[in-house]
Amino acid sequence: MEDAYIIELYWQRDESAISSTEQKYGSYCYQVAYNILSDREDSEECVSDTWLRAWNVIPPQKPDRLKLFLAKITRNLSLDCLKTRNAQKRGGGEIPLILDELAECVADTGNAEAEFMANELTRDVNTFVRSLPEREGNLFIRRYFFCESVGQAAWRYGLTEGNAAVILSRTRQKLKCFLQQKGYEV
């Protein structure tokens, strides 16, 4: 079923939109959630919440790319679930490793200013990724957006795991320099 038709069902408030979405993107969203949570039940719960969130935001939104729109929702819900689930700051799966890697880029000092500047920082991150060569940018996204393992991301682009790890390390250094230039406290 075409995405446009599914979105049209959402706009018509037809509940079959949810089953159609689940049928088409259920496993994809589950994989996104599982990369973050590494837990079957939590992942399934996040995917179910994704359908509900999509039902609530469409309309008024009308996403151009339904798949990635759902991936974003699932990712955010999974991170929220992770924070809720773990009083300790470490989660399961790839997240501890990813957080350790991102520590190279930022000082771990949460503050209100950073929350306030969230939109601006998101825009800057977009600018940073666009400035990267395509392969480095894609690796960065697979690793830090979709939370895939280094091996998975490397396989996707025909690289060895070691090569991908080196590319990601250099990208993190670039990100650190970029954020410093932008005046962020890192």
Partner: peptide
């Protein structure tokens, strides 16, 4: 800025 915040912002 925390690592978790950076991870969340990458989501945007």
């Amino acid at each position: 800025m925390s690592r978790m915040q950076l991870l969340e912002w990458i989501g945007g």
